[in-house]
């Protein structure tokens, strides 16, 4: 059974790097670079995991996450959040919004892979 990850990231180079990594791990990777319609994309794609950037054009990753958690069938969807703004306030906000894992850029590839594996393992166990 194929695993699907939805990567919402407006930096094309970063998106490409993550796609490369996760594809080699056997993930089916879909990408999206726009904030404003991200929620609909998530619902339509029905992924096993979402990787969400914070600073997105149109709508911030925080708002997307908050709205996502409002939806009934999206409570348990693992969301890995990435941010380039190195402020501790962001981490708190993300946790309050219901993030599954929060990571600050730049990250090591191993970290991202470990996080994705952990999140997926938790999600399939429960």
């Amino acid at each position: 059974m194929s695993r699907k990850v939805l990567l919402i990231e407006d930096e094309p180079n970063i998106a490409e790097a993550i796609r490369f990594l996760l594809t080699r791990e056997g993930w089916q990777v879909e990408t999206h670079a726009e904030g404003s319609d991200a929620l609909q994309v998530i619902q339509g794609a029905n992924p096993d995991l979402v990787i969400l950037d914070v600073m997105l054009p149109g709508k911030s990753g925080m708002e997307i996450l908050r709205d996502l958690r409002e939806l009934e069938d999206m409570q348990g969807l693992p969301v890995l959040m990435l941010t380039a703004r190195g402020q501790s306030r962001d981490r708190e906000m993300a946790e309050n919004a219901g993030v599954s894992r929060f990571m600050t850029k730049p990250f090591s590839n191993a970290e991202v892979l470990t996080a994705v594996r952990d999140l997926h393992a938790q999600a399939t166990r429960s």
């Binding site: 180079n13 970063i14 790097a17 993550i18 380039a84 703004r85 850029k105 730049p106 990250f107 590839n109």
Partner: peptide
Amino acid sequence: RTPMTSIRA
């Protein structure tokens, strides 16, 4: 951080 992320990745 954004370009550094790409460079590192």
